[in-house]
């Protein structure tokens, strides 16, 4: 980990020095959002000769930290900025919508949970699948670490801001979560929709309030479990007028219908236009 953090610092430093010279727009942050932003950058550079946009990873928090300190121009993140970072003047742009779904081991005998049941499963009020209409089988909750964006979304929407029960298994990545759910009898978890679609053979999706997670469900407003992918800018550190112009044009390109309905949809995300506004801040 030490080496990784050092490497990130070095990369950030290099990017900073490069950007100072060639007026490159640097983008850092979420590895989940990285691929589509990279695709957007490639298309944008093709259309606008002389513009350089460099996209690198590091994680949502790295992106937010770097954009706050001026280490990069755009920070991409799966989660909202912390109150301290908001105070520093970061500006949020929602660039994509990410639908989430409940999943379970195929043998639990349950295909749908009401909002209340889902909440009780994860707060620990319900401990056996037979209490929610399934087989006589202990419920094994697999969740993400406390700092994870997915866990923040789950806590807000599924648990209505209550604490998770202490009787949980924690897995670091969505891949490990899926493997864990597929191999552990009675397991239940919460992942991005695309991971359910990729692993339909090993795990089962669970509908929320009788509505299965789908793109149409989110678009029609019937399926309420989703979050935004964010791009943050820091006007206080963005003093160069030309760079500012490029950043605005680039964000406008990401939000353009052509990019949103084409690339975003194909990458497993949904266009921001599907969701007008979110009642609660995730």
């Amino acid at each position: 980990m030490r080496i990784r953090t050092l490497a990130q610092t070095i990369v950030a430093g290099l990017l900073l020095s490069v950007s100072a010279q060639a007026q490159t727009v640097t983008v850092m942050g979420s590895t989940a959002l990285g691929p589509i932003v990279k695709k957007a950058a490639e298309d944008f550079m093709k259309a606008n000769a002389g513009v350089q946009i460099a996209v690198s990873g590091g994680g949502s928090m790295t992106g937010l930290n770097q954009v706050t300190s001026g280490g990069c121009v755009i920070g991409i993140s799966d989660v909202y900025a912390t109150p301290d970072q908001d105070k520093a003047g970061l500006v949020n742009h929602n660039i994509v919508v990410q639908p989430f779904t409940l999943i379970a081991h195929p043998g639990v005998g349950v295909t749908t949970l009401t909002a209340q049941q889902a909440e009780q499963v994860f707060t620990g009020k319900v401990n056996n699948w037979k209490e929610v209409g399934g087989h006589d089988q202990k419920i094994v909750r697999v969740i993400r670490p406390e700092s994870s964006g997915t866990r923040a979304v789950q806590k807000k929407i599924i648990l209505h801001d209550q604490e998770f029960t202490k009787d949980v298994l924690i897995q670091d990545s969505t891949g490990a979560v899926v493997t864990s759910v597929a191999t552990t009898a009675g397991a239940v978890s919460f992942v991005e929709l695309e991971h359910l679609e990729k692993n339909k053979a090993r795990i089962a999706g669970i509908a929320y309030n009788g509505v299965e997670c789908s793109n149409e469900g989110v678009k029609s407003g019937k399926y309420p479990v989703f979050s935004f992918g964010h791009a943050y800018t820091n006007p206080a550190k963005l003093t160069d007028a030309k760079t500012k112009q490029v950043v605005e044009a680039f964000l406008a390109y990401i939000l353009s219908p052509a990019f949103q309905d084409g690339v975003v949809l194909k990458a497993g995300y949904l266009p921001v236009s599907y969701v007008k506004a979110l009642k609660t801040k995730l």
């Binding site: 980990m1 990784r4 953090t5 590091g58 994680g59 949502s60 928090m61 790295t62 937010l64 930290n65 912390t82 301290d84 970072q85 670490p145 406390e146 700092s147 994870s148 964006g149 949980v168 298994l169 924690i170 670091d172």
Partner: peptide
């Protein structure tokens, strides 16, 4: 009983926490 160690917690949380925060 599912448990945790110093190393596992570092691997899971360190990349996702804001630098300078208490956490």
């Amino acid at each position: 009983t599912p448990a945790a160690t110093l190393t596992t917690e570092l691997v899971q949380e360190l990349p996702n926490t804001a630098s300078g925060s208490t956490w």
